[in-house]
């Protein structure tokens, strides 16, 4: 074991450094992010709608035929509970509430993002 450690000293040091920097970055990102106030829905790189986080609602986001993501806002947190995409990654993503956090659905080209300030697009109030 000691021999292995000595032989591969440089690579172990480099990888440990990368690991520590990443952990530090996660902590900093978590500390800097503030609680958001609105959810913005982006489809195909364009903003489609925004919803206030303080009201509990359920909406179906349908921008293409047979493609949908069901967005639920509850207790100030947004999450996608149902989707038509095959991988269901957006459904498995944890609910989001901090500025800059996103849930991404690659197959449906839908991104939901938390923002602090309201933008000019305001479809639903």
């Amino acid at each position: 074991m000691k021999k292995i450690l000595k032989k591969h000293k440089i690579e172990i040091i480099i990888i440990t450094c990368i690991l520590l920097v990443s952990i530090l970055a996660i902590i900093i990102i978590n500390l800097l992010s503030n609680k958001g106030r609105y959810v913005v829905v982006i489809y195909n790189q364009k903003e489609q709608a925004s919803y206030a986080l303080d009201k509990d609602i359920e909406v179906d986001l349908t921008y293409e035929e047979n493609h949908y993501n069901k967005l639920v806002i509850k207790d100030g947190k947004a999450s996608i509970v149902e989707a038509s995409c095959p991988d269901k990654i957006c459904v498995k993503t944890y609910s989001i509430s901090k500025v800059g956090e996103t849930i991404v659905c690659l197959p449906n080209k839908v991104v939901i993002k938390i923002v602090g300030q309201k933008t000019d697009v305001d479809v639903v109030t």
């Binding site: 990368i18 690991l19 920097v21 990443s22 952990i23 970055a25 996660i26 990102i29 982006i42 790189q45 800059g100 956090e101 996103t102 991404v104 690659l106 080209k109 991104v111 993002k113």
Partner: peptide, 16 residues
Amino acid sequence: IMSTKEIGLYLPVLVI
């Protein structure tokens, strides 16, 4: 593809 810069925030998690 998403033109959403915030996805970059996942970078440290993905590195780990």
